[in-house]
C-alpha cells in the first residue's frame, strides 16, 4: 500500500525534522535511498520548484514527492503525513501554554524567547540578502569587485525600502503587491 507508506514516511519526517522546510531535506535524501521512489537528481529539481513556487518549502516538497510517487492521492497522503505530527504536538503544547500563560516562570521564559525569535528572523533575512544582492560565485570567478554586488537587485531593494517605509501612498499596500511588482521587475530587467 504505497499511500500508507507515503503517509508513514512523511509522518516520520514531520516528527523528526525540526525548524524550517530545509530541515526536511536530509530525510528526503534518505527516503530516496531507502525507497527508490525518486532519484537524487529528481529531488534537486523538486527543491528548485519548491523554492520558486508559493507555499512553505517543506509542504511543497512533500506534495511534489508524493505526486511523483503516486499521483494526486500520493500528494495528499504525503502532505497530510507531514503535517499530522505538528498538529498533534502543537495542539497539546498550545493547551498546556494556555493553562500556564499567567505563570511567572513561563512569562519570564517568553520574555527571553521573543528577542531570540527576532534575532533568528533577522539572521534568516541576512541569509536571503546574501543570495539576493551579492554574487559570491561570480566574484570568485572573476575577482572583480564590481561583480560582487548585484547592482540591479540593490537598486530594487532601495526602491522597495523607500516604497514600503517612507512613501505614504504605498507604505500601507499589501505586501503581495510588492512581491508581484518585484517579480515583474525581475523579468523586465532580467535579473
Amino acid at each position: 500500500m504505497i499511500l500508507l507508506r507515503l503517509f508513514y514516511e512523511f509522518f516520520k519526517t514531520g516528527l523528526f525534522a525540526v525548524g524550517g522546510g530545509m530541515a526536511t531535506l536530509p530525510f528526503l535524501y534518505s527516503m530516496s535511498d531507502a525507497t527508490g521512489w525518486f532519484s537524487h537528481g529528481q529531488l534537486a529539481d523538486m527543491i528548485a520548484v519548491s523554492e520558486s513556487t508559493p507555499g512553505p518549502i517543506g509542504v511543497n516538497m512533500a506534495t511534489y514527492v508524493g505526486f511523483t510517487t503516486a499521483g494526486l492521492p500520493g500528494a495528499l497522503a504525503a502532505t497530510l503525513g507531514l503535517v499530522t505530527p505538528s498538529i498533534i504536538i502543537i495542539l497539546i503544547i498550545a493547551r498546556v501554554l494556555q493553562a500556564f500563560r499567567q505563570n511567572r516562570v513561563v512569562d519570564a521564559a517568553f520574555y527571553g524567547l521573543r528577542p531570540c525569535s527576532v534575532g533568528l528572523i533577522a539572521a534568516a533575512g541576512l541569509l536571503v540578502v546574501k543570495i539576493a544582492v551579492f554574487n559570491f560565485d561570480l566574484y570568485a570567478q572573476t575577482g572583480a569587485i564590481g561583480d560582487l554586488l548585484n547592482l540591479k537587485a540593490l537598486l530594487l531593494a532601495a526602491v522597495l525600502v523607500v516604497l514600503t517605509r517612507y512613501v505614504k501612498a504605498t507604505k500601507k499596500l499589501h505586501p503581495i503587491v510588492f512581491i508581484l511588482g518585484s517579480a515583474a521587475a525581475g523579468v523586465l530587467f532580467s535579473f
Binding site: I121, A132, A157, V161, T164, F178, G186, V187, F191
Partner: peptide, 18 residues
C-alpha cells in the same frame, strides 16, 4: 528572473518585519 526579483522583495519585507 521573477524569483530573483521576489527574493529581493522578501529581504526588504523581512527587514521591515524585524
Amino acid at each position: 528572473s521573477a524569483f530573483a526579483g521576489i527574493r529581493v522583495c522578501v529581504c526588504v519585507l523581512i527587514f521591515n518585519a524585524v
